[in-house]
Design a protein around this nucleic acid. Structure first.
Lengths: 215, 215
DNA sequence: GAGCTTCAGTGATAGCCTCTAACTAAATCT
DNA sequence: AGATTTAGTTAGAGGCTATCACTGAAGCTC
């Protein structure tokens, strides 16, 4: 008996329409990117006319913000469930790549060109910190030999971004480098900058990861 | 006597208006990003009304294509002149970062979220190859000790992207890694993903570069 | 169950945008 | 001087976001 708790029929209908709007929005984004997202088109697809959508979202910006929130949440979930089932850094990196390849425009919604005036709401930055924490956990589980670099010591004194994560500076450094390197390969690959170059982006991705693990 | 060769007054006027249009377009892009670029607004700024711009550009897409071409050209020039005055890899990386920070939206016009249907014209991919060649030249000038990695051998057999560049596989690998790593740090920095984290992105950029040089 | 309130959805409208088409007027060419 | 090319105009089609006033139905209260 799928009792939905103490929700009124109106609320249930409302959330159902909201999620259908978001589903259509994701379809549009997957095929034509976020800039092509049109409230009007979504409304017509759903058989209702234009301004009706403004009952459910204050505007285009609020819808996109919600989609960004969901994208962050999806990535955080993907990495967290992978980590909870014992994934190491390699497996985490693989999960990230799979997630990105599954819907490139969703990746760019998070890590692509920023929209000038946009400021992410607090809960989104919280989720982003959670993603970083998952990566740092996996980094802290690795042995970190070798001398501390100057950047390590810089991180030692500027580590409030880690939100109190107990990883040692070398692990923080590794976490940051992991993030930036994987994003470097992924974003160029997804944007098509490797097209026609012949080599396999997956191997470059793996090579970058290996280099990071063995140092 | 700045004789402009065998150009008619009409041609001169035409190219002058074209460049003024592009200047206004760059101003718009620098402040509000490429998605906010409006032909209408540019026309009004220049004191003429809407459709007049279509005498100079076939449409919004052609203008943006032209801007992308110019951005690529500007980056290629910056790196090439730096290389010609004896810059090593570190100096090249520094020049790249300066160029990106000078106008982040120009960087994203090249390396940001791709527009779905867009296919870069041939001459643009040619300029992109030139940029890569400058990087590879600097990589080939470095000693490459250490054993060949599996990815090196993969590159050995898939090196048509290097457009006949004579660099050894290890240098090709280093060139690719340089590109992706610097882009990884730069794009996240420019997109504001390091905001509020406290550490200095320039130091991370330098650390990534150092790691690449000493291996 | 009758009446009141809330709310989903509508059409009309304003103000942007890109882009096309027909036309005017000026500059250039012959 | 006359013919031609071309820069710029207005008008308009069709798209978009977003607001407003209104209708009709669903839910709530007594």
């Amino acid at each position: 008996m799928a009792e939905t708790g103490t929700t009124t029929p109106r609320e249930r209908y409302r959330t159902q329409v909201r999620t259908e709007i978001k589903e259509r929005a994701w379809e549009q984004i997957a095929t034509a990117g976020a800039t092509a997202l049109s409230l009007n088109a979504i409304a017509k697809q759903m058989g209702m006319s234009g301004p009706a959508l403004y009952r459910y979202f204050a505007g285009r910006d609020e819808l996109i913000t919600e989609l960004i929130r969901d994208a962050y949440g999806s990535l955080a979930d993907t990495l967290r469930t992978a980590a909870e089932s014992g994934a190491d850094l390699t497996a985490l990196a693989h999960a990230l790549r799979e997630w990105a390849l599954a819907d490139p425009h969703r990746y760019f919604l998070i890590y692509g060109t920023p929209v000038p005036g946009y400021q992410a709401p607090d809960d989104v930055t919280g989720i982003a910190q959670g993603i970083m924490a998952t990566l740092l956990d996996a980094c802290a589980a690795l042995p970190s030999d070798g001398p501390a670099t100057p950047f390590d010591t810089h991180l030692e004194s500027h580590r409030q971004w880690a939100a109190g994560h107990p990883a040692p500076p070398a692990a923080l450094h590794r976490g940051l480098a992991l993030w930036t390197r994987l994003h470097g390969v992924l974003s160029l690959e997804l944007a098509g900058h490797f097209n026609g170059m012949g080599f396999d982006p997956a191997l470059l991705y793996a090579a970058e990861l290996d280099d990071l693990l063995s140092r």
